[in-house]
Nucleic acid binder design. Structure first.
Length: 109
DNA sequence: ATGGTGACGGTAT
DNA sequence: AATACCGCCACCA
């Protein structure tokens, strides 16, 4: 539901996510902003439905946390790509956290 | 048109 | 730090 595979919004979101280089990440909010909208949720919907064909693990939340229930799977990709991570031991009680400050990326870079 | 639904964001408690 | 709540936006019944 919500969002059709032919929508421009979906195409743009998938295009941006697919353009994110390895070792870099973007937040839902940043993607939405790039599209000229603030619908961070909508971006999340797109990922949930069509993110299967795109490096979804490179898309994280504003706090640097990967999508809920996917952190374990995403972690493998991060380690494989060399994405800057912040160990939980020195950061929070969570499993880990993405070094958003260093890994954040913007289209056209 | 109206309401409901989110892989969200931010502020308040 | 962890919840709770509200505000956002695109889309479907």
């Amino acid at each position: 539901m919500a969002l059709s595979p032919e929508s421009e919004f979906v195409a743009h979101v998938l295009d941006i996510v697919d353009a994110i280089p390895p070792g870099r990440v973007m937040t839902y909010g940043d993607i939405a902003a790039t599209l000229g909208s603030r619908g961070a949720r909508v971006v999340g919907q797109v990922m949930a439905r069509y993110g299967s064909d795109v490096p979804w693990w490179r898309v994280i939340r504003a706090g640097g946390h990967p999508p809920v229930c996917h952190e374990n799977r995403a972690l493998e990709h991060y380690r494989a790509e060399g994405t800057p991570l912040v160990p939980a031991s020195v950061a929070t009680t969570d499993a880990y956290r993405v070094d958003y400050a260093s890994a954040r990326w913007s289209p056209g870079e």
